[in-house]
Write a protein that binds this DNA or RNA. Structure first.
Lengths: 223, 223
DNA sequence: ACCTGAACACCGTTCAAGT
DNA sequence: ACCTGAACACCGTTCAAGT
């Protein structure tokens, strides 16, 4: 969790890094929706306009936060066969999103990151090319993996939030129990299984297994 | 595009359906971020507070819009083997997101839909169970498919938007060409392939093939 | 029931100004 | 350069009121 930076900052100690760290903190707490520059400025003990000395505006700040939050996902290097390398990188990306839930919103609005995400992209592409995929299929597999990891983890974060909030949890329960069984027989019968498989490493690994198994087969067939 | 409903509505002809249709229109035009109740009310030729006669607030309206936009994805029934059924449903879901790009934001914030999405869920689960998956694996496969389709299609929509906007397109190009080749050799070498595989049915089918191939193998191994 | 205007507490950002 | 207050054009929503 590092420095919270929620108290007044002494004069001339403000910096882009400090603002980004504090913004990430606030974003994870209140969500991308409720985040505001004015609230961030108040946390930093500074006038709203001060932030404009460091960033052109809200969008630029959010981009910086996304890159910063993504940065830690690119630290260690992957090893082993291409399957294992890909597993490692995807797990790391998911871990970073779980640690900073605001990444779901930030990545949805601006998928392309700067240098920080170039690290992950390089590692993934390298593993795929070394694994034997040709240029087109390596590119396609990369995009598939990125969309899959972000999509599945975003869904996971939202469902876990729904479970945490008692009010929303009750509302979801009501919708599910209110479904007419003659119209949605399978859904009603499997409601329990669906609830029990929400979130967790097992669910993520299940999906990752599917994609990688599909990639192995594809590699044998076409390269 | 149906009824645009952007002119003044005669007295007593306003309805929840009309508001939802107009809201969907505005949301697709300006995006979830820039959408506001006040702008919607202006489009409808009505005072902002009038909307509160039909919806408790903005969130409830957005939920209604999401369900409405998702509705058309559940119209036709899937047929054939479980693989073909799943393909059909996933393609339909993607098609609906492409037709209504605001669904990327709406589904990200509120993944669980009402009856409208129950239709898709029922079809997907039914195909999986009939295909031979046990309760747990059918539930896991369902969640994987949902996350995959929404995630990959969201990425597609964002990348296509980036290609459309000349300013953002140029910025992305600059970032890519500015990457040091000695640090990101694979990424730099495959920048062209990445650009060429952005969006389109081929890219989506590539990913869907991977997931379904993985599911076929999983079915043989474990049920 | 359906619809409204005024008001409240917000928001991002421009501008002119201070150090 | 770093930081500020006042102001502008917004926003969602509450409230009291009209038909």
């Amino acid at each position: 969790m590092e420095t919270t930076a929620r108290t007044r900052v002494p004069r001339n100690t403000l910096s882009a890094e400090l603002i980004v760290a504090s913004a990430l903190n606030l974003l994870d707490q209140v969500g991308v929706e409720a985040f505001s520059l004015r609230a961030l400025a108040k946390n930093l003990g500074v006038a709203p306009m001060t932030l404009y000395t460091y960033f052109r505006g809200k969008d630029e700040l959010l981009d910086a936060v996304r890159d910063h939050a993504l940065g830690a996902a690119a630290l260690t290097t992957a090893y082993g066969g291409w399957q294992h390398q890909i597993r490692t990188i995807c797990r790391r990306l998911r871990g970073q999103i779980l640690e900073h839930p605001c990444l779901t919103g930030l990545l949805q609005q601006r998928p392309l990151a700067g240098h920080e995400s170039a690290e992950s992209a390089e590692s993934l592409l390298k593993a795929l090319v070394e694994g034997g995929f040709n240029a087109e299929n390596a590119a396609r597999a990369y995009t598939t993996l990125l969309g899959f990891v972000v999509g599945v983890t975003t869904l996971e974060v939202r469902l876990l939030e729904e479970n945490r909030d008692p009010e929303r949890r009750e509302k979801v329960r009501q919708i599910m129990t209110g479904l007419p069984p003659e119209r949605y027989p399978t859904l009603v019968e499997h409601a329990g299984a669906l609830r029990q498989t929400v979130g967790g490493d097992t669910q993520f690994e299940f999906g990752l297994d599917l994609v990688i198994a599909g990639m192995e087969q594809r590699l044998i067939l076409a390269g």
